[in-house]
Design a protein around this nucleic acid. Structure first.
Length: 591
RNA sequence: GGACCCGUAGCUCAACUGGAUAGAGCACUCGCCUUCUAAGCGAGAUGUUGCAGGUUCGAGUCCUGCCGGGUCCGCCA
């Protein structure tokens, strides 16, 4: 049960009863009516905008509508009083039991409290990471990885049937460069080339992917195949070594992801799509719809490439679907562009039953969003929807000092470095403390600091404190059953302090926080919610320092203690539930 | 030149997607530990929400135009 939906229902019942009696016109649209916690507690428990929303269509003054609502809703179950405020808000004061009952709901449901039916098990495909299989994951990938994973968990909690997908870009020229670098490392492993040779070649730009990470894989290849590939021409070794390289890089990426607690459901290979003729088919279908033609693009204004020359190309009418210009499907050599195979890939997702798709991309792909959405509209006859979440850059600091990384030297801060430095859970939580489209500062010193301005610590500390209470409770209340089932039957009417009721209100916001975050595709809202919840818990805790009567454990008042234990236990459950969406383990102890 | 993102307190960020007097942390001052973790809590004040218009009962939020910052801009994925 959700307090807000219950109250909203009662407001709507009141309006419908009034309509039936002729006090309000029929056919009013009730969708925009809300029931929410007012920002200011003096405005009551729940506030509704119904009168203001209905005033215009009903051709009445907001306050007149409000009076009609108040007259009826005042007598509804659980409502003590209703009054009109400001421009026409109806403020409701609820029976404390309305909030108190939330506690037992939470204890009965456990971490499934907050699960919703919002999604109706609609299939949603969340594609994230999708890093090129050419090296280990780095910091930039970490944010998209965590974001996508948390978004997937969030949508699952909100009742969607989520598939987590990784798109493997294994068809372009970059994997051939990878194969060449692998071959070089392989010769090095056999002792036929030296590290100096490699450095020279890398310096001259003859070998890309100069990082050391290929060495291990090359060693594996050398011990498996001996010098089998050493005397052959590139034509002979390129394909097998390419396949070997991709496979070993993917293994490495999967291990990196596993270290972050991430496991995708589906890996889709670009090359497999191309080989299966899916690109040809997808483009042919668009051609049938008259959306493909051969033409010449105008050069970009203002910043013209030096080697610009007009060329006729196979183009997609992206501009008919909201993009700025039409986009090329074929390169001048006649091969497909990356965009063409990406269209085929999204067509493939759509055909697999995903009308709702979410792609998580890095900041440098911002300019690609419109064309991909245009592509999805075209290939799905406007039945598919693609939301693209762009994750902005992560700026690394150590105690306020920027951490520089040079990708050139093959030395960038890897995902592993991050995890080794601060731990998986800290990485995950911090990456979710900002909106995806805002840049994020990640300070190695700060994220491990034990203070209020480190949100991970602060939330975990609240959880640990609650567990600490329970460790003591066993001594203070010997023989009491402190299980969730038992606490769910505690007499919560003994928790009637205004701070305790406020705590319950916050707990009751959890389901709607989930829904709102899921609809907006914004997992970061959970981080802020948890932070606020933790702050309230810490505040309530400290009430006990000032006033012994407010301590959770009162040896001479077992009933009241049990009620308070039920309350704080439900806070712990909600925190655990939120951290669960983030893939973070709640801590029972911080010492 | 164009497209996309961002612009809120000295700094870092919120604001329940159009609601009431725009809120937190940091920094600064003062106060709170014989008892559940003081790694915490309480009190104290800061704003022309970049600027100018528009839409309506009501705008930080939506629309238009400027200003400033970032990212990107045919055959790289």
């Amino acid at each position: 049960m959700n307090v807000f939906t219950v109250i909203r229902k009662q407001v709507i019942d009141a309006i419908e009863a009034e309509v039936a009696d002729g006090g309000l016109p029929a056919d009013l649209k009730l969708d925009a009516i809300t029931a929410e916690l007012p920002r200011d507690a003096s405005h009551g428990d729940v506030s509704t905008n119904a009168a203001m929303v209905l005033a215009k269509p009903a051709k009445m003054k907001p306050r007149d509508v409000a009076e009609k609502i108040v007259a009826r809703v005042s007598y509804a179950d659980g409502i003590i009083s209703a009054d009109i405020a400001g421009p026409g808000f109806v403020n409701l004061r609820l029976e404390p039991s309305m909030w108190q009952s939330v506690v037992s709901d939470v204890l009965n449901l456990g971490v499934t409290y907050g699960d919703s039916e919002l999604g109706g098990q609609t299939p949603v495909n969340v594609e994230y990471v999708s890093a090129n299989p050419t090296g280990p994951l780095h910091v930039g990938h970490a944010r998209g990885a965590v974001f996508g994973d948390a978004l997937a968990a969030l949508l699952a909690k909100a009742g969607y049937a989520v598939t987590k997908e990784f798109y493997v870009n294994d068809a372009g020229a970059q994997v051939e460069s990878l194969a060449r670098a692998m071959h070089f490392r392989y010769l090095e492993a056999l002792g036929k080339k030296s590290a100096e040779d490699f450095a020279t070649a890398a310096e001259a730009g003859e070998v890309e992917y100069a990082g050391d990470y290929l060495k291990d894989a090359a060693g594996v290849l050398a011990s498996r195949d001996g010098d089998k590939w050493a005397g052959l021409s590139e034509d002979e070794w390129l394909v097998p070594l390419r396949n070997f390289s991709i496979a070993s890089m993917l293994d490495m990426i999967r291990e990196d992801l596993a270290a972050l607690g991430i496991a995708h459901d589906v890996f889709t290979s670009e090359r497999a799509l191309v080989d299966a003729g899916q690109v040809d088919r997808a483009i042919a279908d668009l051609e049938k719809d008259g959306l493909v033609y051969t033409g010449t693009l105008a050069p970009p204004k203002g910043k013209k490439p030096d080697d610009w020359e007009p060329r006729p190309q196979l183009l997609f009418k992206a501009s008919e679907f909201g993009d700025d210009i039409d986009r090329p499907f074929k390169k001048s050599d006649g091969s497909w562009t990356y965009f063409a195979s990406d269209v085929a890939y999204h067509r493939d997702k759509f055909d697999r039953g995903f009308a709702e798709m979410i792609d998580v991309w890095g900041a440098d792909h911002g300019g690609y969003v419109k064309r991909m959405q245009a592509g999805v509209k075209a290939l799905s006859s406007d039945k598919g929807a693609l939301d693209v979440k762009i994750c902005q850059l992560v700026k690394l600091f150590d105690n306020g000092e920027p951490v520089t990384m040079s990708k050139r030297a093959g030395k960038f801060v890897t995902l592993r470095d991050l995890i080794d430095a601060v731990g998986k859970d800290v990485v995950r939580f911090i990456m979710l403390t900002r909106k995806n489209d805002a840049p994020l500062d990640f300070d190695f010193a700060k994220v491990t600091e034990k203070s209020r301005d480190n949100p991970v610590f602060y939330v975990q500390y609240a959880h640990a404190r609650i567990h600490s209470v329970f460790r003591h409770a066993a001594e203070v209340l010997p023989g009491q059953d402190l299980s969730d089932d038992a606490l769910a039957t505690a007499d919560l009417s003994l928790c009637s302090d205004s701070d305790e009721l406020a705590m319950m209100r916050s707990i009751s916001l959890w389901p709607r926080t989930i829904d709102a975050a899921a609809v907006a595709h914004e997992p970061h809202r959970i981080a802020f919610y948890l932070y606020d919840l933790a702050a309230q818990l810490h505040a309530l805790w400290n009430r006990g320092n000032d006033d012994a009567e407010m301590r959770f454990l009162l040896p001479d008042q077992p009933e009241r203690s049990l009620a308070r234990l039920a309350l704080v236990r439900s806070v712990a459950v909600v925190i655990a539930s939120g951290l669960d969406v983030f893939g973070v383990k709640p801590l029972k102890e911080m010492r």
